[in-house]
Design a protein around this nucleic acid. Structure first.
Lengths: 153, 153
DNA sequence: ACTGAGACTGAGACTGAGTCTCAGTCTGGC
DNA sequence: GCCAGACTGAGACTCAGTCTCAGTCTCAGT
């Protein structure tokens, strides 16, 4: 936090836009967490925090933050976008637990190198990689084993 | 085609469901193409072909086909689902051109092995892998180079 | 063939994430 | 202070996808 404000301000200035109070509120809320969040989460959080910002403004600000590469959008096929800080580990992948919805991350440079190589082999100019592994997290896998054992016994 | 009908019929029978005319119409349309398609594409196609099937039924049938693993759903962050045949190359990745929207595929067993290994290292039980590389296809990259050259010269 | 339980259908209402519009407000260079 | 143009919130709108419901069809049992 701090760097982000700077980057955002620079970006806004370059495009003749202003760092207004609602934008600052959103910026602080966004960079005050390290979780993946949705626009709706953020709107609810701001509401609860007593600093409500309208839906339209939240979406507009998230869009600006994505444009200046401070945020990255992710889609896990839920019909809504998840956001995360772009500054975290670069080009990491996601593990999405279909049972509890938990999202965790992993980073493996070999995976990135391999993807880059494959893309270029196909004449493709890669900009962003998105590796999503769907399945069950350790907790849910364990729960399922216990439940299945119970069902049998 | 043929195998798919068999698999679908077996699945339906096992669940006390019927292979009705609208379902058959959808099945034929779905397996009559090898492209990635959206529900909307399919509805429009059936309309044009003079064999319209209602939106609700199309969605219901696509959902059944996904359940019995004949189709796989994909999300490229467009706010709509793309479908493809599950029988095609297994666990392949997608190259999505952000300029023209074209979707192409690649298959690399090393990528799958690596993903499986990474997931299990994290205690995660993988069910499905989704590798999406966003960027520019060869055509669009070339177009862009020409356009940029033109802008400078 | 007839019957009844329950599966199926289409039309259209509904949902929910995200976008757009618009009137009123704010910002900052002059 | 003025003004162009950026910004805001409220709520209308869009659009993919889901749900509802009344009417229809299917098929096992007779």
């Amino acid at each position: 936090m701090g760097d982000e404000v700077q980057i955002f301000e620079d970006y806004l200035r370059k495009h003749s836009l202003h760092l207004t109070a609602p934008r600052e509120t959103v910026l602080h809320a966004v960079f005050g967490t390290h979780e993946h969040f949705t626009a709706d989460d953020l709107i609810a959080h701001l509401q609860r925090a007593g600093t409500p910002v309208s839906k339209a403004t939240v979406y507009r600000t998230l869009s600006l933050l994505s444009e200046c590469s401070l945020l990255i959008e992710h889609d896990f096929g839920q019909g809504k976008k998840y956001y995360e800080h772009a500054s975290e580990l670069q080009h990491h992948g996601h593990l999405y637990c279909s049972d509890c919805g938990r999202i965790s991350e992993f980073y493996d440079p070999r995976l990135n190198a391999l993807q880059d190589k494959i893309a270029r082999q196909e004449g493709f100019e890669p900009v962003q990689f998105a590796v999503k592994i769907y399945g069950r997290c350790a907790d849910c896998a364990a729960k399922r084993v216990r439940r299945d054992a119970g069902a049998i016994g």
